[in-house]
Nucleic acid binder design. Structure first.
Lengths: 189, 189
DNA sequence: GACATTCCGAACCGATCGGTCCAGAGTATC
DNA sequence: GATACTCTGGACCGATCGGTTCGGAATGTC
């Protein structure tokens, strides 16, 4: 019947995701996406429609493969202080061990939030949704600890988490220190 | 002798600063800088050299007129808990009262930090320097409170402050809430 | 071999970018 | 009025951008 597909969709989208992640949506050019995916411009256009559409695929990939695995343990029923500590120590280990290039990527969604002028309402909602997702996860866990100030603590923790990802773009070592501090802080609760 | 200068340097740089602030360095075009400053492309080029040089001037303006006035009270000898609370309640008031356009600007330096690929080492150091400036101010104040965990608290507070500015770009109302929460948190120390 | 499909390279489009240059008008001093 | 400086508008540059199209080679099924 026909020639078989020669490239893997997941591999290509993941490669594109990493470029968007490192460089942001606007500054990423089609040429860089071509180089990263190994696909020609024609193939990219035919397969994904447009740069913007490819970014949507990349963001979905990011949520599925990066965010959800990290946040998953916090969502589990019965998750409490230990899971929260493990969350931050996990990030500390990541910022300590990961190659500089990787550690400096920060958060794909937060990075593009600063690009916001170039993006559209859909992208803005994506970023806001991510922030609320993190907040709700923290709030649920803090709720189980029975603290009266759970709501406030969750707000501050969410902000710290955002600050953590931004800091990692400037200084991965400082981000590792910060993640450690956050884990220690949670221990004192 | 000669014709007198017809525009005010401070006014022009401040106008350019606001454009960079709202849109980021990369996405800001010369046309937008011309519109904001009221200067022609020729005048901009002759006076400031290049877009990049103008950004440096804008960043200096930002530090002098925006950052230092806010952080000043924290630097004053004898500054303590009250000044810290006032700092965050001041931000809360700003995010509550300021027009949406203004409240959503976030922090000029943090915004450009996400643009980092487009920028150079000088810009990266500018942003890192800003972060350390905030951290040192917090650390000094927390030191006077005689807490054993002053260093850790300052790290977390710095991250929260960064998260606060990023949040303001997504949702000024949430930023106001967060600033309030931070002030309340400091009160409990 | 006929056929369907995948994939690529290259040419091309219109637009925008930052930057350069210059002729000339405006405005001050002497 | 001569002179010196400011400032503008517009033409222009080379480069890059995302996107579009097409011819043709490659690779599979039947």
């Amino acid at each position: 019947m026909a020639r078989t597909k020669e490239f893997d969709d997941l591999t290509a989208v993941t490669a594109a995701r990493d470029v968007f992640w490192e460089r942001g949506y606007g500054p990423t050019s089609l040429a860089q996406l071509m180089a990263a995916t190994g696909l020609s411009k024609s193939s990219l256009y035919e397969t994904y429609g447009s740069k913007r559409d490819l970014f949507t695929r990349a963001a979905e990939n990011y949520l599925d493969l990066i965010i959800n695995p990290r946040l998953g343990p916090l969502d589990a029923p019965g998750a409490g202080r230990d899971e929260l500590i493990a969350y931050f120590t996990g990030l500390e280990a990541f910022f300590t061990k990961a190659p500089d290039r990787i550690a400096r990527r920060g958060c794909l969604l937060l990075n593009t939030a600063m690009d916001l002028n170039d993006l559209d309402d859909e992208a803005a909602m994506l970023v806001s949704g991510y922030r609320e997702r993190v907040f709700e996860a923290f709030r649920a866990v803090l709720g189980t600890l029975g603290r009266a100030d759970a709501e406030r603590r969750a707000q501050i923790l969410t902000a710290s988490q955002i600050g953590l990802m931004v800091t990692s773009r400037l200084d991965p070592a400082a981000a590792a220190q910060l993640a450690h501090a956050l884990a220690e802080d949670v221990r004192t609760w």
